[in-house]
Each structure stands twice: as C-alpha cells, then as structure tokens.
Amino acid sequence: SQVHIGNTTFTFDNPEKAQKYAEKYAKKKGLTVQKNGDVWTVE
C-alpha cells in the first residue's frame, strides 16, 4: 500500500496504516485523500 503526498511516496505493509496516515496528514494540512486501489493520494 502506498501514500502519495506531492512528489513523495510512502510505502506501508498494511493498507489500514496507509489509510490512517493519509487521512491524518490530510486533516492536518486541510487537504483531501483520493483512493485508487491500494494507493492513497493526498492533494
């Protein structure tokens, strides 16, 4: 599972961890999370 934030990609061994990280980061920065398969993009 991966989380894309700008030009940075974070890889997680667990989809739940990836989703939590993406949502927490997005909330903190006032951004949105797009999910595509097991990839979350914060923008």
Score class of each variant (00 low, 15 high):
Ser1Val: 14
Ser1Ala: 13
Ser1Trp: 15
Ser1Tyr: 15
Ser1Thr: 12
Ser1His: 14
Ser1Met: 11
Ser1Gln: 07
Gln2Ser: 08
Gln2Tyr: 14
Gln2Ala: 08
Gln2Asn: 08
Gln2Trp: 12
Val3Pro: 01
Val3His: 01
Val3Trp: 00
Val3Glu: 02
His4Pro: 02
His4Ala: 06
His4Met: 13
His4Thr: 09
His4Val: 14
His4Leu: 11
Ile5Val: 09
Ile5Asn: 03
Ile5Ala: 03
Ile5Tyr: 03
Ile5Ser: 02
Ile5Phe: 06
Ile5His: 03
Gly6Val: 06
Gly6Leu: 09
Gly6Arg: 10
Gly6Thr: 05
Gly6His: 11
Gly6Cys: 15
Gly6Lys: 11
Gly6Ser: 07
Gly6Asp: 06
Gly6Trp: 11
Gly6Ile: 05
Asn7Tyr: 11
Asn7Ser: 11
Asn7Pro: 05
Asn7Leu: 08
Asn7Lys: 11
Thr8Cys: 15
Thr8Gln: 14
Thr8Glu: 12
Thr9Ala: 06
Thr9Phe: 15
Thr9Glu: 07
Thr9Tyr: 15
Thr9Trp: 15
Thr9Ile: 15
Thr9Gly: 03
Thr9His: 13
Thr9Cys: 15
Thr9Lys: 12
Thr9Gln: 07
Thr9Val: 15
Phe10Glu: 04
Phe10Cys: 15
Phe10Tyr: 13
Phe10Thr: 06
Phe10Pro: 04
Phe10Trp: 08
Phe10Ala: 05
Thr11Pro: 05
Thr11Asn: 10
Thr11Phe: 15
Thr11His: 14
Thr11Tyr: 15
Phe12Leu: 03
Phe12Lys: 02
Phe12Ile: 03
Phe12Ala: 02
Phe12Trp: 03
Phe12Gln: 03
Phe12Asn: 02
Phe12Met: 02
Asp13Thr: 08
Asp13Phe: 06
Asp13Gln: 11
Asp13Asn: 09
Asp13Tyr: 07
Asp13Ala: 10
Asp13Trp: 13
Asn14Ile: 06
Asn14Asp: 14
Asn14His: 08
Asn14Pro: 01
Asn14Ala: 09
Asn14Lys: 05
Asn14Glu: 09
Asn14Gln: 07
Asn14Leu: 07
Asn14Met: 06
Pro15Ser: 08
Pro15His: 06
Pro15Leu: 07
Pro15Gln: 08
Pro15Ile: 06
Glu16Phe: 08
Glu16Gln: 09
Glu16Arg: 08
Glu16Gly: 07
Glu16Leu: 11
Glu16His: 08
Lys17Thr: 13
Lys17Tyr: 10
Lys17Phe: 09
Lys17Glu: 15
Lys17Gly: 07
Ala18Met: 00
Ala18Leu: 00
Ala18Lys: 00
Ala18Gln: 00
Ala18Glu: 00
Ala18Pro: 00
Ala18His: 00
Gln19Phe: 08
Gln19Ile: 05
Gln19Ser: 06
Gln19Gly: 03
Gln19Arg: 14
Gln19Glu: 11
Gln19Leu: 08
Gln19Asp: 02
Lys20Ala: 13
Lys20Ser: 11
Lys20Trp: 11
Lys20Met: 12
Lys20Gly: 05
Tyr21Cys: 14
Tyr21Thr: 04
Tyr21Leu: 06
Tyr21Asp: 03
Tyr21Lys: 00
Ala22Met: 04
Ala22Gly: 00
Glu23Thr: 04
Glu23Leu: 12
Glu23His: 05
Glu23Gln: 06
Glu23Ile: 05
Glu23Gly: 00
Glu23Tyr: 08
Lys24Asp: 15
Lys24Met: 14
Lys24Pro: 00
Lys24Gln: 14
Lys24Cys: 15
Lys24Ser: 13
Tyr25Arg: 02
Tyr25Gln: 05
Tyr25Asn: 04
Tyr25Phe: 09
Tyr25Leu: 13
Ala26Leu: 07
Ala26Trp: 03
Ala26Ser: 04
Lys27Pro: 03
Lys27Ile: 05
Lys27Val: 05
Lys27Ala: 11
Lys27Glu: 11
Lys28Glu: 14
Lys28Phe: 10
Lys28Pro: 04
Lys28Gly: 08
Lys28Trp: 12
Lys28Asp: 12
Lys29Thr: 12
Lys29Val: 08
Lys29Leu: 14
Lys29Ile: 08
Lys29Ser: 08
Lys29Asn: 13
Lys29Gly: 06
Lys29Tyr: 15
Gly30Gln: 05
Gly30Cys: 10
Gly30Ile: 01
Gly30Ala: 04
Gly30Leu: 03
Gly30Ser: 04
Gly30Asn: 06
Leu31Glu: 01
Leu31Asn: 01
Leu31Thr: 04
Leu31Ala: 05
Leu31Arg: 01
Leu31Gln: 02
Leu31Phe: 13
Thr32Ser: 09
Thr32Pro: 04
Thr32Met: 08
Thr32Gly: 05
Thr32His: 08
Thr32Leu: 08
Thr32Lys: 11
Val33Glu: 02
Val33Tyr: 05
Val33Asn: 00
Val33Lys: 01
Val33Gly: 00
Val33Ile: 10
Val33Leu: 08
Gln34Phe: 12
Gln34Lys: 13
Gln34Leu: 11
Gln34Met: 12
Gln34Asp: 05
Gln34Tyr: 12
Lys35Val: 06
Lys35Ile: 05
Lys35Gly: 03
Lys35Glu: 01
Lys35Thr: 04
Lys35Ala: 05
Lys35Ser: 05
Asn36Lys: 11
Asn36Thr: 11
Asn36Phe: 13
Asn36His: 10
Asn36Trp: 09
Asn36Gly: 03
Asn36Ala: 09
Gly37Pro: 00
Gly37His: 02
Gly37Asp: 07
Gly37Ile: 01
Gly37Cys: 07
Gly37Glu: 06
Gly37Asn: 06
Asp38Phe: 11
Asp38Leu: 09
Asp38Thr: 08
Asp38Glu: 10
Asp38Ala: 07
Asp38Val: 05
Val39Ile: 13
Val39Thr: 12
Val39Asp: 12
Trp40Ile: 05
Trp40Thr: 04
Trp40Gly: 01
Trp40Tyr: 10
Trp40Asn: 02
Trp40Val: 01
Thr41Gln: 06
Thr41Asn: 06
Thr41Ile: 14
Thr41Met: 09
Thr41Gly: 01
Thr41Leu: 11
Thr41His: 10
Val42Trp: 04
Val42Thr: 03
Val42Ile: 11
Val42Phe: 08
Glu43Ser: 13
Glu43Arg: 07
Glu43Asn: 09
Glu43Gln: 12
Glu43Leu: 13
